[in-house]
Amino acid sequence: MGLYSYLLISIIIFTIGVYGIITQRSGIKILMCIELLLNSANLNLVAFSSYNGNSTGQVFALFSIAIAAAEAAIGFAILVALFRLRDTINLDNINILRW
């Protein structure tokens, strides 16, 4: 399969992720969508790596996976802490800071 098929999938997943971030209300779902985005980028990197014939992309992806995991941990920690205070993770309600 050509490079562009992978890119296509990556972009589709990316778009779905973006769509999710915009539409979803649950904090957890939004975090999942962010994972989708990072994942699509990883897919890109790996696809390019294979296409370009060097492994830099894979190295990059490796870093990226590690970082994504860490990020997820932080994100969920924040969500849990917030839930403890506010009793909700519905982001529509988390808007004391505005204007």
């Binding site: 490079l3 890119l7 980028a41 890109n44 990197l45 696809a47 390019f48 296409y51 990059f60």
Partner: peptide, 8 residues
């Protein structure tokens, strides 16, 4: 994503 494209 942008970086991946550049790399590509």
């Amino acid at each position: 994503f942008g970086m991946s494209l550049i790399y590509g």
